[in-house]
Amino acid sequence: MSLGPFTRERSPLGVYLQYAVVCLFILAPILWMVEASFKAPTAVTAYPPHLLFSPTLENYATLFETTPFGQYALNSLIVAGGSTVLGLLLGVPAAFAVSYQAITWPATLTLAARMAPGTLFLLPWYIFFTALGLVGSHTVLVITHTVITMPLILWVMLPYFDGLPRDILEAARIDGCSPFHMFWRIALPLVKPGIVVATILAFVFSWNYFLFALVLSGFDSKTLIVAAFNFVGEGATNWGALMAAAVLIALPPLALSLLVQRWLVSGLTAGAVKG
């Protein structure tokens, strides 16, 4: 493996300095948000801003007292969890079939779906799901978020199925193993690491997704993401509580991404990389 052209570094000090500047640029706004969430409400909007302050959990308390934050969190959990499970049920067998039969078009079709602007499907969805009386339910959010999770899972799983030793599957087939058994008993246990990566990525993407829930969620099914957007719309006078909400909403995806850090980029670029 190549180390690239710039590994002949004479003095790494300058490089570390550049590292630090880049990291500071990325981290500064995030740290500012976290810091603001721990400031007393009056200190949050103080101008000039205070760098030193005594931390308080007041904003978090306000958030839970004045909004049904727990309910929103539960909604997000149901939607992200449900669409991840549905995405796995649909996407994993499909990935096995695509890999096993060496056909490409179904995978490409789901990829095209992921690339299209979400607004494109939203009007028909809105019309149909209104007719079915489903707008505002958890069900509609689970189903529509699966449009995001299923292609993601399919594409993340493909290389894992492609990497299986073909002799095993071939031997099983000769022994009279049906394709479903081959998938369920032989292939699936061997691709467990891929399932973990796919599950986590799908959950994070569904958790973060804004547009579908913006239109299709209702009072009882509002996800954290849409609730947070509404906080902003309500005038956003309480910055402290706003930042507390932002921190809490960002925590699950950040923590989960840490677990799959090594596979993150290949997961996010799956399908777009020329082989």
């Binding site: 706004p29 948000m33 973060n208 804004f210 993401i225 947070a228 957007f229 909403i249 960002a250």
Partner: peptide
């Protein structure tokens, strides 16, 4: 989430 980025 983009919502968090926007709020921030």
């Amino acid at each position: 989430p983009s919502v968090v980025i926007g709020m921030m």
